[in-house]
Design a protein around this nucleic acid. Structure first.
Length: 304
DNA sequence: ACAACCTCCTGGGGGC
DNA sequence: TGCCCCCAGGAGGTTG
């Protein structure tokens, strides 16, 4: 599912639930996703307050008051769902309530509110002190979660080789030119490589290259200075527009509140084989080719 | 060092 | 209706 805009959309949706709230209860309903959950996964989360929910590349980072970070990746089909904003757990001063203690009628580790129909793929359930409940759903289980010491995050194998944030200040035309110079691999693969730029995936690479009128097949190092500058602008622009639109909903992407993204209606090339190019004055037709096993969509007429 | 694969897993859609 | 094959937004791991 998710590339940078989808992950960022999810982050913004989850932020109001995660940030500042303590995790009362966490339920990992199976021992693994793509990888096994780390040692004492649940114990390291329960009772911890989430101080911030950040994003790096396509990862969500839940900063915990324990000095650890909950690292979450959505893989291809992962999504979060804010299940219900239940009544807050009453505080002791309000009488009967006992903070952190569940009502007897609740089944430990399960939501008491109605779940969506594909709850079989609800693999992790978060319940907050605020009463909010969040389900992580992932049919294909290519996603994963782990917990890393926050101070060691940048040096962690998952992050140490991750490239520049394309919406950050460090991503300039000159930086992009440096990333691509002397690279013999085609632009498509160069841009998909998370070690260069963090967060682009199959959709937004295709869309950005089309906007810049660059062929995905062209060796990255052969793009002209002018084209690289256009590509830089196109990458930023397409990502910003997609975030603004709430991401792209192809199959299962939802914003955390359940809303659909609608950037897919703006695709110029992705999954549009046979359609007209759409660039002013171009009579070309969108083609589909396969590069390293994955679909590439582009206009052979004007993307050079 | 690098690039081309293969792999994990489930579900949806098209063709017959 | 059913079955089979292909395809899918990622990316770590292995091979050459």
């Amino acid at each position: 599912m998710p590339e940078l805009p989808e992950v960022e959309t999810v982050r913004r949706g989850l932020q109001k639930v995660f940030e500042g709230s303590a995790l009362l209860r966490v339920n990992a309903r199976r021992p693994d996703l793509r990888f096994p959950f780390p040692e004492r996964f649940v114990e390291r989360l329960e009772g911890r307050r989430v101080t911030a929910l950040d994003r790096r590349a396509k990862y969500l980072l839940g900063r915990l008051d324990s000095g650890e970070t909950l690292v979450m990746h959505l893989g291809m089909s992962g999504s979060f769902r804010i299940e219900e904003q239940a009544a807050p757990i009453p505080s002791p001063s309000q009488g009967e309530g006992r903070v952190g203690v569940l009502a007897a009628s609740e089944t430990p580790g399960d939501f008491v509110y109605p779940r969506s129909k594909d709850a079989t793929h609800d693999h992790v359930l978060f319940e907050f002190e605020s009463g909010a409940r969040v389900a992580y759903n992932d049919p294909r289980r290519f996603g994963f979660m782990t917990i890393v010491e926050t101070a060691e995050l940048d040096a962690h194998p998952l992050f140490k080789d991750i490239g520049v944030e394309p919406l950050g200040e460090a991503f300039t035309p000159a930086h992009l030119a440096g990333l691509l110079s002397d690279v013999k691999a085609p632009l498509k693969s160069a841009l998909l490589d998370q070690r260069r730029i963090a967060g682009l995936g199959n959709i937004y690479v295709a869309e950005a290259l089309h906007r810049a009128r660059l062929s995905p097949l062209k060796p990255a190092g052969e793009a002209s200075r002018v084209k690289v500058k256009a590509l830089h602008g196109a990458i930023r622009q397409v990502l910003e527009e997609a975030i603004e639109a709430g991401g792209s909903t192809l199959r299962d992407h939802r914003q955390a509140d359940g809303a659909l993204g609608y950037f897919q209606h703006t695709f110029a090339v992705y999954d549009r084989e046979g359609a007209g190019c759409g660039h002013k004055g171009c009579r070309g037709m969108i083609a589909r080719v396969v590069q390293t096993g994955r679909s590439t969509f582009y206009c052979p007429e004007c993307q050079r």
